[in-house]
Simulated scan of single mutants.
Amino acid sequence: MQADFFAKKRRNSLAFLLALAGVTLIAIVVTEYDVAKGFTSVPDAVAWALGNFYPTQESLVKLPGIIDKLVETLLVSIAATTVGAAAALLFAILGSNTTRVNAFFGSISRGIATVFRNIDVAAWAMILLFSFGQSSLTGYFALFFGSFGFLTRSFVETIDEASSGSVEALRATGAGYFSIIFHSVIPSSMPQMISWVLFMIETNIRSATLIGLLTGSGIGFTFNLYYKSLNYDVAALVVLVIVAAILCIEAVSNYVRRVIL
């Protein structure tokens, strides 16, 4: 019986790999992608980057301005994530099977979160450009909507996994709805929720660079400005600053996770 089970898993895995290979082959044919040329061009690209795309002593003059734009990007990302997390917590409580008021409100909350989650932040930025133009506010709302959708789904799953037992125990003692929320759901789910928020901050900082290209703000716009003006040394410095910031944020995030989890 066990041998048949593993044989079936191997057949399913093989079928999936064959289907994936078929889709890849079709994509190569449809897009007329030259695989050989793609691989052989890598050494030339690396040689060009090593010969042109590196910061110089002259580019360091631009560092204070780059740092200012980086700080702007970091603040917008953190603000969008934390406000989105607050809204997501409310919708997650209403949408969770453990804490929902009724099935109707639960379905509405999940549906709204699904819509926001399945629209990429870049798409949100392009949609919002019509209303707010190229500004930091456009980037903020794009990151906020993306964070709200993702965190609502994550918080719903966290609440269902972390607090179902304690909620049932409190209900058996006759505790009220808000007493259950504040004395069981939030305390038991908070460490995992904080972990999700930290993950979302990291993701938004990366996404904010792309959003800046569309909204004309932040560190992404700074990179685009120098790259298009052929100032590759300054553009390389911008990239290094972004990488350093992401690594620092990730290190802090991992430390906080180790402390709270």
Rank of each mutant, 00 (worst) to 15 (best):
S188W: 00
E32V: 00
F6D: 13
L17D: 01
L74E: 09
L14I: 15
K37Y: 08
F150I: 10
D4E: 15
F221W: 14
A245I: 04
A236N: 11
T24C: 07
G174A: 08
V256R: 07
G51Y: 06
Q134F: 13
L60P: 02
S59I: 12
F141E: 07
L94W: 03
Q192I: 11
N97K: 13
D4L: 15
G216T: 12
L240W: 11
A244P: 03
Y140K: 10
I67H: 07
N231H: 11
V197G: 00
A88E: 09
V121C: 02
L129M: 04
A169N: 11
I194Y: 02
R257N: 02
A15R: 14
L230A: 02
S147I: 05
E250L: 04
A175C: 08
L170S: 09
I246E: 03
T203D: 01
L198M: 06
A3S: 14
E72N: 10
F16P: 01
T209P: 01
N204S: 05
A113N: 11
I186L: 07
G174N: 05
V197I: 15
V115G: 08
L129A: 01
A208D: 04
I67D: 11
V256T: 13
L17V: 12
G149Y: 02
T158W: 03
I112D: 02
V35A: 12
M1S: 13
P64F: 10
A245F: 02
F221I: 04
I219C: 02
S41G: 10
V46Q: 09
S164R: 12
V185P: 06
S179I: 01
T222S: 08
V30S: 05
K62G: 00
L89K: 05
S13C: 00
R110A: 02
I181H: 12
W196H: 06
F182R: 14
G106N: 12
N97I: 00
F53G: 07
V156E: 05
T114Y: 02
A208C: 07
K9Y: 03
K62N: 07
F150Y: 10
A142L: 06
I127F: 15
F199L: 08
Y33E: 10
W48I: 12
S59G: 12
L129N: 04
I201H: 07
S217D: 03
K8L: 13
Q57T: 13
